[in-house]
Design a protein around this nucleic acid. Sequence first.
DNA 1: TTGTAAGCGTTATCAC
DNA 2: GTGATAACGCTTACAA
Lengths: 341, 341
Amino acid sequence: MEQTSRPRRPTLADLAKHAQVSVGQASASINGAPGPSEKTRKKVLKAAEEIGYRPNKLASLLARSATQRVGVAFSLGRSFHTELVEQIYEVAQPLGYEVVLSAVVPQNPVRRSIESLVDARCDGLIIIAAGTVEPDSSEVLRGMPVVHVGSSPSIGRVDVIRTAGDDGLQKAVEHLVQLGHNRIAYFDGGAASGAQERLKGYSEGMRQHRLARHRRVITAGQTYDAGYEAASWLLRHRLPTAVACYNDEVALGLIDHLRTAGISVPEDISVVGFDNGHESRMPSVRLTTIAQNIPQIAQLSFNRIVTELADPYERPQEFVLPPQLVVRGTTTAPSQQPSLV
Amino acid sequence: MEQTSRPRRPTLADLAKHAQVSVGQASASINGAPGPSEKTRKKVLKAAEEIGYRPNKLASLLARSATQRVGVAFSLGRSFHTELVEQIYEVAQPLGYEVVLSAVVPQNPVRRSIESLVDARCDGLIIIAAGTVEPDSSEVLRGMPVVHVGSSPSIGRVDVIRTAGDDGLQKAVEHLVQLGHNRIAYFDGGAASGAQERLKGYSEGMRQHRLARHRRVITAGQTYDAGYEAASWLLRHRLPTAVACYNDEVALGLIDHLRTAGISVPEDISVVGFDNGHESRMPSVRLTTIAQNIPQIAQLSFNRIVTELADPYERPQEFVLPPQLVVRGTTTAPSQQPSLV
DNA sequence: TTGTAAGCGTTATCAC
DNA sequence: GTGATAACGCTTACAA
């Protein structure tokens, strides 16, 4: 009877034997490392082709000191996250770094997600914050380079890279005020990452423009549904002339609910989002929003990892990137005469 | 000067020494494997706590025969993909399987994505098809269990699990016909996975209802933007009374464009999607759609992997799951009298 | 240039 | 129960 256990994959030893060289030469040839002569290399590569050799990454990583891997923890559904992940591939791959993903889902909460990345022996971690961070996972990190993206102000021993949420919301308010708005409400992100700061920016902006008495904060959340839901509160009261939102998703939910209720955006009410994610570009919406520079964040995150890898003395830093107002179609001058301040 | 290279993580040997047991006992204690006495186990666990020991997964996997990992290749932006990934976590984690992700992005095309999963020594692969599959990657797989989700009919040596697209579109047409529609157009998915089959179902449905002369196929694609774009073709011609779409995203793009152009959905025109992704539930849309049973697909995919792992003689199979019509708010009887057949 | 052999941190198979 | 010790498949000095 034929023994049909699954075929064993050829090892480096098999390859070496087949090519009639030592394992050392075989290894170096495969990795393009200096050493082997051109003749040897050719021979090895040919043999590899013939027997279908593929290096065992596990063994390779185990034997190596640095793994050239960067781990990324992110949320599957949030477009800011997935767009950032895509950009990270864009900067990491060309430099020979592999990106290892771990999705934050109910069955795989942040804590566990980070652990799995550490266990996978990543050289560094990029954690795209969903909600607030538990700083207690720091023991597990053992001083490996970690950058936290979009987190609230510094959480200690790791890098933080974020877009200035306060600045962003002040810009949003400023924009609306210049258009002639004064009853400007805010859809807050609740416990979401960076929510406090954005809220602060809104409040500050309102104060600066002597609009404090028009300040209205509605707690929404960070999803489309949250925005849609929170909009019903708005509809039960006197409408503001404009609403700034924690992020694009919330803004979209709000807009959809308003339009469903027969209220025009931006004619009846202006709306501003935050993130400049791809959905803000939807032709039916063309959301005015506060842009985060995702490619820049990806680049900076990766650079920080590499820098800290190269220099163990490098201290964790906090980077606050400037947001940028992107005016599209959901903001315009208020139709009704604004009440006097 | 203090030598501050990054602190070396404690190994199993360190742990064994600290706990004053052999590495074998230490290993078994950590893994909850039978063997060590309760006393030994306690001692080891305590020591592990003290020195902050974490097993090196790489080494562990290398030494083990089966890795208990299932690799998943998927697209970041497509909701069917991410929702399925989430469900896979749901079924795999509780059974002690780790899920390893590889995103298909420009810098990491399908081919490479699969390779990285194989190299990570996954026991099996779940490939969520984006576009058509290159069957030539089969060499790299070396007979490991692979299930292809959503692929077009069988591609050879791997399992295929998909929702019957033809059946789905016939159901969609059927539904529309029953509502009184006859000028029913179809927004095609182009080269997307399963597109051909769904198109076939549409054509078949139209024929069965003697509506062949009303058959209208517009090539859209698989994204919101594609749907939005393709809608402009519709607007330049006499409008159909209803449109069935390759998927939800396309349907949403279409609807948004129509509404922007002042055409009401479903009053002026009915629209049906495919997938029943979370966006089809958006309150402003409530898309009538053909549902894929994502939890079932996840469960079945995973089961197949496990089954094939257990029995190497198991042959690849094709599973075609029945789609289900979900009626929501984007379909209704046509307002204008349908022209006589 | 080439070959040899000592790790890398586990698991698993033995004797004891 | 417990403790050596040989794999696992690769990298990397080091010697030839």
